[in-house]
Design a binder for these strands. Structure first.
Lengths: 163, 163
DNA sequence: CTCAATGCAAATCTTTTGCATGCTA
DNA sequence: TAGCATGCAAAAGATTTGCATTGAG
């Protein structure tokens, strides 16, 4: 019996496949499995994390393939590569199952490393960003394509245990 | 003749020394030289960059010492550690010669890697940040201590050469 | 004189690359 | 069937660590 990811029959994540198919790029069992793992996880996973989890459902995968696909899926705008300062890249899905794009920022606890996603200020951010981008691109003749906003501090739990 | 940093006589950067002296920590020739190099540079230097430059004025220094001091000076709030996505950490001085703290954000060219410092939108940013911080810390019970704002895009030169 | 700081060599850890083989479209 | 994708082993880089020695205060 060819397993869930054995021969890449089911194409469960084909919705995301359209983010990259069409350049001769292909949906593969490995990509499907990586996306499935990231869909299920609420955490921000490192390459190693992804490798371990994918390995459970698709044992023949190699770490190199994980790295290559994380890069590929990031370039294809399916994933976002994050840096929370712990010396390894972490990844998150930025598409819903339908293929819609999501956007949020992060609160990073500098004590325990926990990361909280938030999106409630996105509207205000948008206003601020628009103005900033306009001013900055004018002043420095710089075409802004993207931004990074992140807050650092102490989460509830860590603050509690310090008292 | 004992050189400029030969025996750590002159203590030129003693103003910054007070950022960390007092815990039994010391101002050394290596630290003085590293600070001097970062003071002179308008670029954001990697550990290797710092090592090469310091080596010219203080040849006996080792790369390990550079790493250790960059970390130490960052912890002491003399430097800021930056990540512009090129796989190595970069550092910048966040104190003036008087010891005052400076604050700015970065425009990062994703084509050539150039980094532009800016601080002119700090006012608007400050407003946005204040509101966001207030709302977020309340909602998530998270004590915000710091933030990171960075813009990515294409600088003048790179945009020009693409046309 | 004490203990923080340093230098060197070796170790670690994450990420990348070369190459032969497998598999999608 | 063509060429993208994969796996393995090895390489590459950045950063860290152990340990004996040096030097700031």
């Amino acid at each position: 019996m060819p397993g869930r990811f054995g021969r890449c029959r089911q194409k469960k994540n084909d919705a995301l496949g359209c983010c990259f198919r069409g350049d001769g790029r292909r949906m593969t069992a490995a990509r499907e499995a990586i996306i499935a793992v990231l869909e299920k996880s609420s955490e921000h996973l490192s390459a190693e994390d992804v490798y371990v989890k994918v390995h459970r459902i698709y044992p023949r995968i190699g770490l190199t393939t994980v790295y290559r696909n994380l890069e590929f899926l990031t370039d294809s705008n399916v994933l976002a590569k994050c840096d929370f300062g712990d010396g390894r890249a972490r990844y998150e899905l930025i598409r819903t199952a339908n293929g819609e794009k999501e956007h949020h920022h992060h609160l990073v606890c500098t004590t325990c490393g926990r990361v909280i996603n938030y999106s409630e200020f996105i509207d205000e951010e948008l206003q601020f960003l628009k103005r900033a981008e306009k001013g900055l691109s004018k002043k420095y003749d710089f075409q802004i394509a993207d931004h990074l906003i992140q807050f650092y501090g102490t989460c509830q739990t860590c603050a509690g245990s310090k008292k």
